[in-house]
């Protein structure tokens, strides 16, 4: 009974410690928002521990030697300069450690690459210097918009105080439902860009003339910010990405709203072109 209590207390404590490391840490990857990001986060932590242990081992020996094996302490140099067995050991052990590191990484790579059976598909296009989004398939099909930096120039030029989301805010967020597999089809219009949202562990270059795909899922509703991650010219630093994840109902509302807007735009467009007379709306596409 009491040992169970201790175990669960320890568990809770460990978990709390662990997640406090994650949340809002300036020293580490952002808090993971899906299982891929979680894998990446965990593997990074494990690797850090391995590196730390090796580091302490190697430099423990070296600094011991630096302190003790000094001429000023009258230490006389030994005369060995070769040992096949030692050399084999320190070749084989690193290989084993590397294999242990590669194993979980391999599984994650395979999962990251698996874009099959998505719930919805969005096409992402990089432009100098903004993003375009087209909802190709799934809920929200047909929605299409551009997404541009919305931070005022005055803030960049230091004429106004900088807002909380300075350089990480856009006019139109990329809105997605939580818990759905979103496949991205990524390309670019001019030069190479890269679509990156750290908390979702997606980064994919957008290559003009080619299509690449990637995918993500968001576990919790919220707003997740990222930036273009490939130098694309003058305003490369000014083309952020904002993903807004909504619960299913709110997402449905958002879709309805967008589709209404879209329909209204289409109508006014057609009116301008004289394709619509009075109140009769034709269904043909121009």
């Amino acid at each position: 009974m009491s040992s169970k209590l201790v175990a669960s207390l320890a568990g809770i404590f460990g978990l709390a410690l662990y997640s406090s490391m994650a949340i809002g840490s300036k020293y580490n990857l952002p808090e993971p928002q899906n299982f891929i990001a979680q894998d990446v986060y965990d593997q990074h932590i494990v690797l850090m521990w391995i590196c730390l242990v090796i580091f302490i081992g190697v430099f423990g020996v070296m600094f011991y030697s630096v302190l003790k094996h000094r001429k000023s302490q009258g230490y006389k140099a030994a005369n060995f300069h070769h040992s096949t067995s030692v050399e084999i050991v320190w070749t084989v052990i690193p290989v084993i450690i590397l294999v242990l590191m590669a194993w979980p990484a391999t599984k994650t790579v395979i999962a990251m690459k698996d874009t099959s059976e998505p719930d919805m598909t969005i096409k992402v296009t990089g432009y100098q210097w903004m993003w375009g989004y087209d909802y190709l398939q799934g809920d929200g099909e047909g929605i299409s918009f551009y997404s541009k930096l919305s931070t005022p120039v005055a803030q960049i030029e230091n004429k106004e105080p900088k807002g909380e989301n300075y350089l990480l805010e856009v006019d139109n967020n990329l809105v997605v439902p939580v818990g759905k597999k979103v496949r991205l089809i990524i390309t670019a219009n001019d030069v190479i860009h890269a679509w990156w949202v750290p908390a979702l562990a997606v980064k994919q270059d957008a290559i003009p003339g080619f299509i690449r795909d990637s995918w993500f899922e968001v576990d919790n509703p919220g707003i997740y910010r990222g930036q273009c991650a490939e130098l694309c010219g003058k305003d490369h630093g000014y083309m952020p990405i904002v993903v807004e994840a909504l619960e299913a109902e709110q997402y449905a509302e958002w879709v309805a709203e967008q589709q209404e807007k879209l329909a209204a735009e289409e109508t006014s467009e057609k009116q301008k072109l004289g394709l619509v007379d009075g109140s009769i709306v034709t269904n043909e596409k121009s």
Binding site: H69, R70, K71, Y75, W90, M101
Partner: peptide, 24 residues
């Protein structure tokens, strides 16, 4: 990842060179 192996060998060799030397 494999490159880390010969790179490690170098570092270990330097450490072993310093070990029981008479350093300044």
């Amino acid at each position: 990842m494999l490159i880390a192996v010969p790179t490690g060998v170098k570092v270990f060799n330097w450490t072993a060179t310093m070990w029981q030397g008479s350093m300044t």
